[in-house]
């Protein structure tokens, strides 16, 4: 059944750990010391190590893959801004809400507002995703 405006996608909630950040660095090939080296990170404006933005964004993609198993990987598009860093130990809440469904020539496009927040409500990621269904 097609999701309709106002429908919410099943969210993802996850506590990011330093071990996860280190595993991600190896898996994605991004070993910037701001993610891995506590002494180095202490001297940056963040004051401590931060998770990769793309690690958090992967959770958005996971939510969209779960909601649209076939169509996200072959017809998905997103545009997001990274609003705040995630520090290891913090829990993030990934959510999505269908804003609009349009039909053009038999191709249905669903627009979804995506959001990642911390426990205190601070935005980590905001943006839109679009899924085409032929």
């Amino acid at each position: 059944m097609t999701m309709q405006p106002g429908d919410e996608l099943a969210g993802v909630e996850r506590t990011v750990t330093q071990a996860q950040v280190e595993a991600y660095a190896d898996a994605a090939g991004d070993h910037n010391p701001i993610h891995l080296d506590a002494e180095f990170a202490a001297k940056t404006p963040f004051g401590r190590r931060i998770a990769h933005g793309m690690l958090t964004l992967a959770m958005v993609s996971e939510m969209l893959t779960s909601a649209y198993p076939d169509n996200w990987a072959s017809g998905g598009r997103l545009k997001v801004r990274f609003r705040a860093p995630v520090f290891p130990g913090e829990t993030v809440h990934v959510s999505g809400e269908v804003k609009k469904v349009t039909d053009t020539g038999g191709v249905q496009t669903t627009e979804i507002t995506v959001n990642v927040k911390k426990d205190d409500g601070e935005d980590v990621i905001t943006g839109q995703a679009f899924v085409q269904i032929n």
Binding site: N32, I34, T44, P45, H52, G53, M54, L57, W72, A73, S74, G75, G76, R77, L78, K79, V80, R81, F82
Partner: peptide
């Protein structure tokens, strides 16, 4: 100092 500010992606 590097900040990843925004990201767009599309998948065919």
């Amino acid at each position: 100092e590097v900040v990843h500010a925004s990201q767009e992606a599309s998948f065919n």
